[in-house]
Design a protein around this nucleic acid. Structure first.
Lengths: 209, 209
DNA sequence: GTCTATAACGAGATAGAC
DNA sequence: GTCTATCTCGTTATAGAC
């Protein structure tokens, strides 16, 4: 079974390696230049392979784009699950959530994949559009859970529904990335993110203390 | 002099008409599809003219793009000046500011021109990049003024510097537009914007009341 | 100022050999 | 699986007639 596992793993790696390397390069390009700002030729050149090879693994740009979002969303969901299981209070979870965005931005000044695609939304293939919305939906649902927890525990105090607050967090962080990236200044993101999160604790919690 | 004025006006209109119509169509396309998502052919078709005509008025896409930002920023500055001279309190000014964004979004679900270009920032000609940053700088400076006024008057209470708060407002509104537009749901923007502005008044002002 | 015509290039995509 | 070669189309841009 150790054999089989290794074989399967090698097989996956051998087959997946090319696909994975394509996804890695394409993901980076989309996050930096946008879906309409990169081409198969760009990816091929970066990997030192031919365009035909890309078409073998991903029939067209639409399929590649869809695969990008799926993988990105899955990775994000994994990170969220990890944060959720940590026995920390909800404010700490929100900070960890914001750090996910900061990590993306710090990596070569990348934009959130789905934030970038949101800008190009109207030009995307339908399936990519749907996948982008699902990403946002999942993030908002996770945040809603954390916010409800914080409200019950008394760690967080905010006006409006947890759902509304969750939406503000997502859009606020996406916007902070968007602008900070143009300035090439990660600290811009950090301060905006901190202010955003603080607005859910300090100001509203002080009155009753 | 009335003659001259009329002649000059007509001349401006006769010459400017084509250029203006090009700018109008291109602006709309960039706000909806992005700078990398539209072409001279798109503009030409929409206006029922040839591509060559566009090149006569705007040498290249870079020049057209630059003109777009310049005009957009000038119009925005005008609106800001109008808001500033109104004898309203600073909270009302912030609401009026947010309404500027809402109006853009309501118009065919357009994204803020510079928010859109911020996403494509890394692919833009240098002069366009600079113009985008200037737009954000101008907005933040205007907001800083309003926030300082509010702080002095006691209408607004917030933690951190007015400058930081101004940056959060700009990025928060841009992000709210970005996400709301994908959902095709303007109310998403409205609630996010309201929450954002409220975080500068209600929560922090309650404790001392 | 506006047109027709076309150049020059890059895009996404496919056929078929290996 | 990966290559070479090629197709077709759309892109920005220009030349030159009107």
């Amino acid at each position: 079974m150790g054999e089989n596992a290794r074989v399967a793993d090698t097989k996956t790696r051998a087959e997946g390696d090319t696909a994975t390397r394509i996804l890695d390069a394409a993901e980076r390009l989309v996050q930096i230049r946008g879906f309409n700002g990169f081409s198969y030729a760009d990816v091929a050149e970066e990997l030192g392979v031919t365009k035909a090879r890309l078409h073998y693994h991903f029939a067209g740009k639409a399929e590649l784009g869809e695969a990008l979002i799926t993988r990105y969303a899955a990775r994000f969901a994994e990170s969220l699950a990890k944060i959720a299981t940590r026995p920390s209070d909800s404010r700490a979870k929100l900070d960890a959530y914001a750090k996910l965005y900061a990590d993306v931005l710090r990596d070569e000044q990348r934009m959130c994949l789905c934030g970038m695609l949101a800008a190009e939304y109207q030009t995307l293939p339908k399936r990519m559009q749907d996948a982008v919305l699902t990403f946002f939906d999942d993030n908002e649902e996770w945040l809603r859970g954390v916010l409800e927890q914080g409200q019950r525990e008394g760690t967080l105090r905010f006006t409006g529904s947890p759902d509304e607050a969750a939406r503000m967090i997502v859009s606020g962080l996406e916007g902070a990335m968007l602008v900070a990236r143009s300035y090439g200044d990660v600290s811009r993101f950090r301060t905006a993110a901190t202010r955003l999160m603080t607005s859910l604790t300090d100001p509203a919690s002080r009155p009753r203390t």
